[in-house]
């Protein structure tokens, strides 16, 4: 196991043809950290992971493990473990052989390889399936084999490419806990790619939010959740209400309706320039003074998701425990500390 203190990505860039899939990704990963690369499909997160693994050559930039340059090494010499989205288990090898493959490639002595293989299989609770072929296992079991195969070689870094996206909702939650538990027991440095913000928030120590191949924000789950760096991150992190308007200090005049709201500017917005107010559905209160008519109500178990429209044509999404029905009059309110104000760049209309 190649121990390291810091893994440094320096301006990692990858172009496909003329298109930039990933532009200037720079960050430092500390030993034992769980990093999630988060973003919508096509944002460059899988590209970043493949660049780290060595499966894609970089167009520009470099990757360093402490003082060793890694990006010039082929994948088999980087010592990283990878869990693939489709698991990529060797279909002609038993669970045992799949898991011991990496140890064999490293030339680990047979007795030790057998011991470590058995231990890894026990770690993912597959003892009674050890001699089966992957085709005889369920999706969740296959995923656990893939994880055991990646961690058994005690890699200095584990890369996971949307490992849970092929599982059903219940299994996904179970495996999420399993991955978190494994990370706590083994302390393996992990880079985890996902498009599921909830998964990223619950697993990671730090999030890297990507959009169009560019880093939007790097921060703890809490930072990204409560203080998204820009309107795109806000949009992705569940700020479903993105209301366009013009800034006026901490106040905002909403565009079609002329309604004035007060919020918290995330960064200074010059007066009179276009801006976006962002608020989560669950943060809109029902004791405000903005009148609206309920149009759609969705039952969500403990809550209702409601779509309402103001007389000025503003559409609001909110969540409430109150049982509303379409046609009801409500008075929506925006708590100023929960309403974030972002400048809207002229190039991207809100």
């Amino acid at each position: 196991m190649t121990r390291f203190d810091r893994l440094r990505l320096d301006g990692v860039t990858r172009r496909f043809g003329g298109a930039d899939a990933l532009t200037g990704l720079s960050m430092e990963i500390r030993r034992g950290e769980f990093i999630a690369l988060l973003g919508p499909s096509g944002c460059g997160k899988s590209t970043a992971l493949n660049c780290l693994a060595g499966l894609l050559p970089l167009t520009e930039g470099s990757i360093w493990r402490d003082d060793t340059r890694l990006d010039t090494l082929p994948p088999e010499r980087r010592g990283f473990g990878m869990v693939f989205q489709n698991y990529a288990l060797f279909p002609h090898m038993s669970v045992q052989k799949n898991v011991s493959f990496g140890l064999q490639m490293q030339g680990v002595a047979r007795a030790e390889a057998r011991r470590r293989t058995a231990e890894a299989i026990r770690l993912v609770h597959l003892e009674e399936h050890a001699t089966k072929l992957p085709g005889q296992l369920s999706g969740g079991q296959q995923q656990r084999v893939a994880i055991a195969r990646a961690v058994v070689i005690e890699p200095s870094l584990v890369l996971m490419d949307e490992p849970l996206s092929n599982l059903d909702a219940k299994l996904r939650l179970e495996m999420r806990t399993e991955i978190r538990r494994l990370h706590q027991t083994l302390g393996l440095t992990t880079v985890y790619v996902t498009h599921d913000q909830e998964e990223a928030l619950s697993l990671a120590d730090r999030l890297v939010v990507l959009r169009d191949g560019r880093v939007q924000q790097i921060g703890t789950p809490e930072q990204v959740h409560t203080r998204p760096a820009n309107r795109h991150v806000a949009d992705f992190m569940g700020y479903r209400n993105l209301l366009a308007g013009h800034a006026d200090g901490a106040r905002l005049t909403l565009d079609p309706s002329g309604v004035r709201v007060t919020g918290t500017p995330v960064e200074p917005v010059p007066d009179g320039t276009p801006a976006v107010a962002a608020i989560r559905p669950e943060d809109i209160s029902l004791d405000g003074d903005l009148e609206a008519v309920v149009e759609v109500v969705e039952y969500q178990g403990r809550e209702f998701t409601v779509e309402a429209r103001t007389p000025g044509g503003l559409v609001l999404h909110l969540r409430t425990g109150q049982r509303l029905t379409p046609g009801d009059q409500i008075k929506a309110g925006f708590p100023p500390d929960r309403l974030l104000i972002f400048p809207s760049a002229p190039a991207d209309p809100a």
Partner: peptide
């Protein structure tokens, strides 16, 4: 043959011959 199999083998330390 799924190309990700060879990529998985590569991340596990297998050179092209293996």
């Amino acid at each position: 043959i799924d190309p990700s199999l060879e990529r998985a083998a590569a991340t596990l330390g297998a050179g092209w011959r293996q």
